[in-house]
């Protein structure tokens, strides 16, 4: 038992494992023209399982698996915390590595403007890859309380109404604040909640007077307990023709543009990658996500949720993000007066 043999064996085996591991590291540097991922792609998710962007990431992964769109597995990696700060910082640390991507939602725009993390502007500090859709905002109320937007506006100019929204200093609150200014309402009470479902429930259960929410969050309660009375886009959505647009209410056109789906704020879902991702890798992801976008599953999903089916490739998405970020800075800092991070680069 005390002989030297087994020890030697152990050392050799460990060495073999080490060598193989080392070899696999070295083998990961192919220099071919058409790029393909050479190791599993990590989809870094900003929420816990079941959170907003987790759902989208896992949905896309499901489609990628089903249609075999990727030669390597795409693995979901949840890094929740700090309204996206933890995941963004992680993604930023993978500079130049094309095997790290992340789903986007609006907190990836707002969080870096508020918290001192390595990422500040998504469009500059990370690699935009694709935009998969736009999720419009609707002003949602309980039909037992308000039947129309006229009733709502009359009430909001009389008294302080209570709004429910997801998180603090994030998209919902920004839209609500902008609305308050545009329609000259009395200051709203803003009650932050953990997620879109809770927000819908707060209004459905009459714990809050209204929310601005995405159609898919409202639909389970529609039309008994929740109805949309105002939509923030140029034309009334065909799913909810009863929802007046904010343009019809004759507000200041600068405000109207800021609230609008196309030119202003909305929830967007897309994909970003680690900083300095090589061009051919970006192309590969663009093509893959284009195929995901075209699948009947994704099209059906967008239709069911009354989402706007847009698709943008990297360059277009980057340009969109620049404008989107500037809009956010404008509303958050100049209109609402929040203190953004003190090292904000001027643009």
């Amino acid at each position: 038992m005390r002989s030297r043999g087994p020890l030697l064996l152990w050392v050799i085996l460990t060495a073999v494992v080490l060598a193989l591991a080392g070899a696999s590291v070295l083998a990961e540097r192919p220099a071919e023209a058409a790029w393909q991922p050479s190791k599993p792609v990590e989809f870094v998710i900003q929420t816990s399982p079941g959170g907003g962007s987790d759902v989208y990431a896992r949905f896309w992964i499901g489609i990628i698996d089903k249609y075999k769109l990727s030669p390597v597995p795409v693995v979901p990696v949840n890094m929740p915390g700090g309204a996206g700060a933890v995941a963004l910082a992680h993604l930023h640390s993978k500079k130049g590595d094309p095997h790290f991507i992340s789903p986007t939602l609006n907190s990836v725009i707002t969080t870096p403007l508020l918290q001192k993390i390595p990422v500040m502007y998504l469009s500059e500090d990370l690699t935009p890859i694709v935009k998969m859709m736009m999720d419009p905002f609707l002003l949602v109320v309980n039909p037992e309380q308000f039947k129309s937007v006229e009733q709502f506006l009359a009430a909001c100019r009389q008294q302080s109404l209570t709004a429910a929204g997801t998180g603090s200093k994030q998209e919902d609150e920004i839209q609500i604040f902008a609305m308050q200014n545009a329609f000259k309402c009395q200051p709203f009470r803003y009650v932050p909640h953990k997620g879109g479902g809770d927000v819908a429930k707060a209004v459905a259960g009459k714990h809050a007077d209204f929310n601005v929410n995405q159609p898919s969050e409202m639909l389970p309660h529609y039309p008994q307990r929740l109805i949309p009375i105002l939509s923030f886009q140029k034309e009334r959505p065909k799913e909810f023709p009863e929802a007046t647009t904010h343009w019809e209410k004759g507000i200041n056109s600068q405000w109207a543009a800021l609230l609008d789906l196309e030119t202003g704020l909305h929830q967007m879902r897309g994909v970003i990658g680690a900083p300095d991702m090589p061009k051919d890798a970006v192309t590969w992801y663009e093509d893959m996500f284009r195929k995901v976008w075209e699948t009947p599953e994704w099209q059906e999903f967008m239709k069911k949720g009354a989402m706007q089916p847009v698709f943008m490739r990297s360059e277009e998405y980057r340009k969109f993000l620049v404008r989107f970020e500037n809009n956010h800075v404008k509303v958050m800092r100049d209109v609402i007066g929040w203190k953004l991070r003190d090292d904000l680069r001027p643009r």
């Binding site: 591991a21 080392g22 590291v25 190791k39 693995v75």
Partner: peptide
């Protein structure tokens, strides 16, 4: 179970 484990600075992966 698709749960990633720490890879360390050397980013070692099973061969």
């Amino acid at each position: 179970f698709l749960v990633g484990l720490p890879r360390g600075y050397l980013d070692l992966r099973p061969p």
